[in-house]
Design a protein around this nucleic acid. Structure first.
Lengths: 232, 232
DNA sequence: AATCCCGCTTGATTTACATCAACTCTCACC
DNA sequence: GGTGAGAGTTGATGTAAATCAAGCGGGATT
């Protein structure tokens, strides 16, 4: 694999500390591929053959049961996904599909496990990454169990606004129906929840949202470092 | 630390492959302590100073926000808890309290991180453990997002019955109010949910439950290897 | 420009679950 | 052996959110 995206991949927390040699070898086994939007990349229950690195685009991780389907997470570039299944040589617990046209690096699972054995720095990075992801899911789980849907939405808006520069404006990074599912609600309810937030200074115009009263919104949302913050 | 429980601890997936020397050193830094029931061991938001190994008893992991409090998991012997926080040298995301009188091994976090650096087998075991835990939370998250409370209860009963030998009888391993919170419902609703399961052969007598119609119960519960099974 | 499609919104209704309140039962404790 | 506290149950009621059903509006297709 040769490409201009390589430096971005190497810059990822997971890869940046590993030796250049190991990284080189790992990348030689990898494929960079472009997928159209709305293509299913991974099916639930299939053995994990690749570690995926999303270089460009957007990918939705989802799960289905009982005829229902819910979005579990949305992956944005540059980020890896389904690391745990690869390490355990197990079956994917979530399915994945592209939201938009995406450039994705596919690293064979066996090579990842080999590099883990041979490069101590990579092993350390993997542990750090896994622990962070673990904590991320725990936070998401707390989010669902402890907050109402309006509170979840409010906190999500606050987070997006901060990620996008903190200028009081935010752009929803994907369709509202996906956001709704991610927040554990129906599209209809997301629509209503946004209107509920209007008195708290949330002005919606399509996928652009302005927050004009942070104080009020935060009073409602009660953001918490133990639920909302991404890092560590 | 010297005690008759040491072999049980060494037998844990996390420790069994590590060198005797590293294990010895780790245990020398550790304390074995007995705590009474209903004692809070860990507060949310405090820096992780110890890796905990529950040797005997039962521990509830819970989280609070918005004046609400929910059980996130129940730890049973012999098992470790809050490994991710220890590895990241971060703050606990969940609080912990004993459900019953418990014997707990406290391993200083710094020693765990040191052993991780020095013992490659231990590093491997940690990755495996973390990945398994990660997948466990993902499953729990799917459980909450994709199933109704009655379905969650039905699957939980099926799981307990299997764990306890598959003889059609199971003992609830802790109080119903904790089970209710773990399943994301109120105690009142757990009570009612158990009654709605009566036509499916669920006979309740205190904390003892008999399952007399597995077929019917499974038809309702639709257990899934990607949500319910513990291993990998 | 007309048409279709699909995401989104809005309103009406239903449903699952929480809350509130009262009562029973068990068990620890004096 | 009586008393009180807390777990569990049951019933009545309230509420958040899902479902059902139209309709709107913007973008792609022809």
């Amino acid at each position: 694999m040769r490409s201009s995206e390589l430096p971005q991949v190497k810059a990822l927390g997971l890869f940046e500390t590993m030796s250049d040699q190991s990284f080189e070898r790992l990348m030689q086994a990898a494929y960079l591929q472009t997928f159209p939007a709305h293509l299913t990349l991974i099916h639930e229950g299939v053995t994990a053959d690749f570690l995926y690195v999303l270089v460009e685009g957007a990918v939705e991780l989802y799960a289905a049961a009982n005829g229902r389907e819910e979005t579990m997470a949305v992956v944005r570039p540059v980020e890896t996904f389904i690391l745990a299944a690869v390490l355990k040589d197990a079956v994917y617990l979530m399915a994945a599909r592209t939201i938009a046209r995406s450039r994705i690096l596919l690293v064979p699972a066996a090579d990842v496990r080999l590099a883990f054995e041979e490069d101590a720095a990579f092993a350390r990075a993997i542990v750090s990454e896994l622990a962070t992801r673990y904590r991320g899911v725990v936070k998401e789980h707390k989010n669902i169990k402890l907050r109402s849907s309006v509170e979840r939405l409010a906190n999500r808006l606050i987070r997006y606004e901060a990620e996008q520069g903190g200028h009081g404006v935010l752009e929803l990074p994907y369709e509202k129906r996906i956001l709704a599912s991610l927040l554990g609600m129906t599209p209809e309810n997301l629509s209503r929840a946004l209107r509920t937030l209007k008195p708290y200074g949330v002005l919606v115009s399509g996928s652009t949202i302005r927050l004009t009263d942070r104080k009020a919104l935060e009073t409602l949302a009660k953001p918490s470092a133990f639920i909302d913050v991404d890092a560590s």
